[in-house]
């Protein structure tokens, strides 16, 4: 065991594995089975980079393909069934089963893991884009039409900005789900931060706890980043309106409520 672990476990027994986990992140050590070196900043950075790459590819692919579809369906008020049932069915599919499905039927590798994560990212993005556009005040849209805007202009200049908070709420759900699920990537030979978790015989308990700390941190940071982008992207007028509402009414919660009412 590494030096750091001894220091910590001598103070509080319960901190032992956590101290060991943190030590695993910052200090290279010999693997449990011996023979190779594990842990330390270099390997952790490697795993983190793969973790982020496969997640970002999946999220961006889902945004590129399904945000426009959501905008289109929402604008024309079509496909309500599609948008809501995709999210309900999507929620029930265990990610492990989905990954196992891809592995056993199509094989292992980066593309398959990215595809699984991509499928996982679709429902919140599609549903929230659709719902967000549908919730835009119809009078506002009528006014835009009356000013002579084309369909495309209405979508781009009116519906999209007004739907942004809802869209970003969906994006946050997608991001969190994808970052969390990328953890089981090593089952398909994509070496993400989940590797120490999946390979305890090499990485030991310290590696597992260290990886768990990192996965939790990466996910919380991902959520925070999307939230910051959301803040920056929300139109000023909408923010003012929300603040006014908030001070009038008591506090409200947003993300789950929106989904639950569909």
């Amino acid at each position: 065991m590494a030096k750091g672990a001894g220091d910590v476990s001598s103070t509080i027994a319960i901190l032992g594995p956590f101290g060991d986990g943190i030590d695993f992140i910052f200090q290279q050590r010999e693997s449990v089975s011996g023979g190779s070196m594990i842990g330390g900043p270099k390997q952790i950075l490697d795993l983190t980079a793969t973790h982020l790459l496969v997640s970002v590819v999946a999220i961006f692919a889902a945004i590129l393909l399904f945000l426009p579809l959501g905008l289109y369906l929402g604008h024309h008020g079509k496909g309500e069934f599609l948008a809501s049932s995709v999210s309900n069915v999507g929620r029930a599919v265990p990610t492990l089963a989905l990954l196992a499905f891809f592995v056993s039927f199509l094989g292992i590798g980066f593309l398959n893991v990215a595809t699984v994560l991509f499928l996982l990212a679709i429902p919140p993005i599609l549903t929230n884009t659709f719902v967000g556009v549908r919730q835009v005040d119809r009078d506002t849209v009528d006014a835009a039409n009356g000013m002579g805007m084309t369909d495309l202009q209405v979508i781009r200049n009116v519906e999209l900005p007004l739907a942004l908070p809802t869209i970003f709420a969906g994006l946050r759900l997608s991001t969190v789900a994808v970052l969390a699920t990328a953890t089981i990537g090593p089952l398909a030979n994509v070496l993400t931060l989940g590797r120490p978790i999946i390979e305890p015989q090499t990485f030991g308990v310290g590696g597992q706890v260290g990886a768990a700390i990192l996965v939790a941190t990466v996910t919380l940071l991902g959520d925070l980043i999307v939230r910051l982008i959301q803040n920056a992207a929300t139109p000023k007028g909408l923010k003012l309106q929300r603040e006014a509402e908030r001070s009038r009414k008591s506090l409200t919660l947003s993300p789950i409520r929106r989904e639950s009412t569909t």
């Binding site: 699920t181 706890v209 768990a212 700390i213 996965v215 959520d223």
Partner: peptide
């Protein structure tokens, strides 16, 4: 009403932490 914000913030963090990480963080 004043307890709403801290409770919702706390539960939201618990919700965001991936279960797979929580499984290992709880074991010790």
């Amino acid at each position: 009403a004043w307890t709403m914000r801290p409770i919702s913030a706390t539960t939201q963090i618990l919700y965001t932490i991936p279960s797979i990480a929580a499984f290992f963080l709880l074991q010790p």
